[in-house]
Design a protein around this nucleic acid. Structure first.
Length: 718
DNA sequence: CTCTCCCT
């Protein structure tokens, strides 16, 4: 079959001969092209008649569902066809593919599934990674796995990486691939730097810049702010201040209809100001924008391997993101962009934004690799290797839910991997079978995974209110597009687990127990004497974002939390009966000091994670139990319990300087934090000398620690 | 000052 490949006036057309030529006898290529060059639609089509295709398929990987559909549709139009003929797409819950299909545009989760069922992609000749500069964890993993296939069983597999901007020389070196560059088609955007800003005054400062921008420019204005709070504050400042102008807000949590209103031109012909989050950077396009005001900040979720929780941080955006935002003003004609920072600050910004693999929970990734039988994930080709501390935390999580046993996948782990969701949620679904609560678990799973369908203002923080509303929706007396999306996910789980839908009442405490299986470390207990604070099983503290009857419970299971410094914020939870948690209670040994005698007393404790249920003195601890308990307490409170002399602190500083001066020498870390963490090594030999609290203060740290350091290293220290 | 974005 010979295809008629369209010729276009798209800028990327110029590089087509080079690209075709390159793939004659090479397998990997990087194409750099800015948005609007037409790379996503034109390039995949140009390969249709290549002999190396040998009847196999081309896979195009897209980071978003909407993009996958529109790109497949546009390619089909270029061929004079409908989507689903030569070019088709596959996204979750929607497939348009036929026997004729040679190009499949798929989203990231789909490619991961394809790789699972066929490690070598034997029906595929070429994988195209679109928008690779976004550096999503899925794209990074898929590239690593495709590279692995290329290096082992598929040396004919072709890979094309398409990217706007990123550290391309590094990628090129790692993949030993050539870079071909294409021009874009973008109108010029004039950049104004408005000077130094203050993160805490963003709404006020932004409102001021918007007022100026609206006087000096014509056309609609798109404003980038970090989050909902800043957007609403800025809207309140701007409302009715600008003549003949409507102010819209735009962010992910906003109901669909309001999002649409912000995207479409104003019905009454008024000028539009849209206050948006980074959702308007790539995902949604607003027509008619001539002017962009960029606050320079955005929010990113950062995973903390210590607690296993993540938190939202307001951060400076990268140069890449700033360029992307400015580009939104030059889509239809020349435009203007106001950057709310100084030229000097601009030089200090990160060039590229941080790849997701560095800041996210890795439990899915680690499980995936274990199923592939990859024993050491660092043996693969990574553009950015996953951080070791995050991998360690992921392994602990997977061991805890019995998915891994000494780094090998268990039978339970394989079942978890089969389910199309996060391993913790999959574990909960499987545990629900034993409790005969599958129907409730599938509803919970869908609600946790999707966007909250209700607002905290209207429904509080109890997840059970969402379950009730979902069941009302299914009985046909509920409404809301959001519940339609959730029900679709819930139904897919019911189909996989072969269970019937349930719309009757249910037990809220069962919700708490099921959630405790997914998030055991988030079981929380109200601190005695401090009604509003809860202690989580992971040892951290949290508060409800909103006070209602749930926040007055003494035990809750938390599903949504933002781990802030100090006290975290709980956004969704369920009541919990602690008696249901019998299997999770562990016995631990700890030390206490008797306040009157000042003696060291060893206790046995019953705990759920770090929440102590019961504590009683232990009559006859072994030396090992005693020293382990002692080390635990030093790890926690060592800064107060040990005596850090000025001489010792000077020595720590000298060690640090010596390491700086001799980067090749392997000095052990002797900063206070590292010492406390490793106290099992150096404190244990002295444990039997510690009988009361003050004995710890008598330890000569300088002598104890320096004695453990090789002589030749000590010579390098002043 | 209630939470950015995306996906099986």
């Amino acid at each position: 079959m010979k295809y008629t490949i369209p010729t276009t006036t798209l800028p990327v057309q110029e590089i087509v001969p080079q690209v075709i030529n390159h793939f004659q006898d090479n397998t990997t290529l990087i194409v750099k092209a800015p948005p609007g060059a037409g790379k996503s639609t034109l390039l995949p089509l140009t390969f249709l008649n290549e002999s190396w295709l040998e009847g196999k398929k081309i896979i195009v990987l897209e980071p978003r569902r909407l993009a996958a559909k529109t790109i497949a549709t546009r390619m089909s139009q270029l061929l004079g066809e409908q989507a689903g003929e030569t070019v088709g797409y596959r996204i979750r819950f929607e497939t348009k593919i036929s026997d004729k299909t040679r190009i499949e545009v798929v989203t990231e989760g789909i490619l991961t599934r394809m790789l699972q069922t066929d490690n070598t992609l034997k029906d595929v000749a070429l994988v195209i990674f679109d928008e690779f500069h976004e550096r999503s964890i899925h794209a990074d993993v898929a590239l690593a796995l495709c590279r692995e296939a290329q290096l082992t069983k598929r040396n004919d597999l072709r890979l094309l990486i398409m990217s706007a901007t990123m550290d391309l020389p590094e990628l090129s070196a790692k993949l030993k691939a050539k870079i071909i560059e294409s021009e874009g088609r973008q109108y010029p955007v004039e950049i104004h730097y408005t000077g130094v800003t203050d993160m805490h005054l963003l709404p006020e400062l932004t409102a001021r810049v918007v007022s100026k921008a609206s006087k000096d420019n014509k056309g609609d204005i798109l404003v980038f702010l970090p989050g909902q709070a800043e957007i609403n504050a800025c809207r309140d400042l701007l409302d009715n201040k600008l003549s003949n102008t409507v102010v819209h807000t735009l962010y992910g949590q906003l109901p669909f209809a309001q999002q649409q209103a912000a995207l479409l031109p104003d019905q009454t012909g008024k000028r539009k100001v849209v206050l948006a989050t980074s959702i308007a950077e790539t995902s949604l396009t607003i027509e008619g924008v001539t002017t962009v005001v960029d606050s320079g900040f955005g929010k990113r979720s950062k995973f903390d391997p210590q607690s296993g929780l993540s938190r939202l941080e307001t951060v400076n955006i990268s140069v890449d993101a700033a360029d992307q935002r400015a580009g939104r003003a030059g889509r239809l004609s020349a435009g203007t962009c106001y950057r709310m920072w100084s030229k000097a600050q601009h030089e200090t910004l990160q060039k590229h934004h941080q790849p997701e693999i560095e800041i996210t929970d890795l439990s899915s990734l680690v499980l995936e690799m274990a199923v592939w039988g990859i024993s050491n994930i660092y043996n693969m080709v990574w553009l950015t290797p996953p951080p070791q501390s995050h991998v360690k935390q992921a392994k602990e999580t997977l061991h805890y839910i019995d998915a891994l046993d000494r780094n090998k996948v268990t039978a339970h782990g394989k079942k978890i991997h089969q389910l199309p969701c996060n391993p913790r949620i999959a574990h909960m679904l499987l545990m629900a079978e034993k409790l005969e609560q599958e129907a409730l678990a599938t509803d919970i799973a869908a609600i946790i995974e999707e966007k909250d369908p209700l607002t905290i203002k209207e429904a509080g923080v109890d997840i059970n209110e969402r379950i009730k509303a979902l069941r009302r929706f299914r009985r046909n007396d509920g409404k809301g597009r959001a519940f339609g999306l959730i029900e679709r996910v819930a139904r897919s789980y019911r189909d996989l687990m072969e269970i019937e839908v349930e719309n009757e009442g249910f037990d809220s405490f069962m919700t708490g127990l099921l959630l405790a299986h997914a998030y055991p470390e988030r079981v929380a207990f109200a601190r005695p004497g401090n009604q509003s604070q809860f202690q989580l099983a992971n040892g951290t503290y949290a508060q409800f974002s909103h006070k209602d009857s749930l926040s007055r419970e003494s035990w809750v299971s938390v599903s949504h939390i933002d781990a802030r410094e100090g006290t975290g914020k709980i956004f969704m939870a369920s009541p919990l009966n602690p008696k249901d948690l019998k299997g999770m209670v562990k016995t631990a040994v700890s030390v206490h000091w008797d306040l009157i005698s000042n003696d060291l007393i060893v206790h046995t404790e019953l705990r759920i994670g770090k929440i102590v249920l019961k504590s009683f003195p232990m009559d006859d601890p072994t030396d090992e139990e005693r020293s382990r308990a002692l080390c635990d307490v030093v790890k926690k409170d060592g800064r107060e319990l040990l005596h850090f002399t000025p001489e010792f602190e000077q020595w720590q500083a000298a060690m640090f300087r010596a390491q700086q001066q001799h980067p090749l020498a392997q000095f052990p870390d002797v900063d206070t934090e590292s010492l406390l963490l490793t106290c099992d090594d150096w404190l244990t030999p002295f444990a039997d000398e510690i009988e009361e609290k003050d004995d710890l203060k008598k330890l000569d740290l300088l002598q104890i620690i320096s004695a453990r350091i090789p002589k030749e290293l000590l010579k390098l220290v002043d």
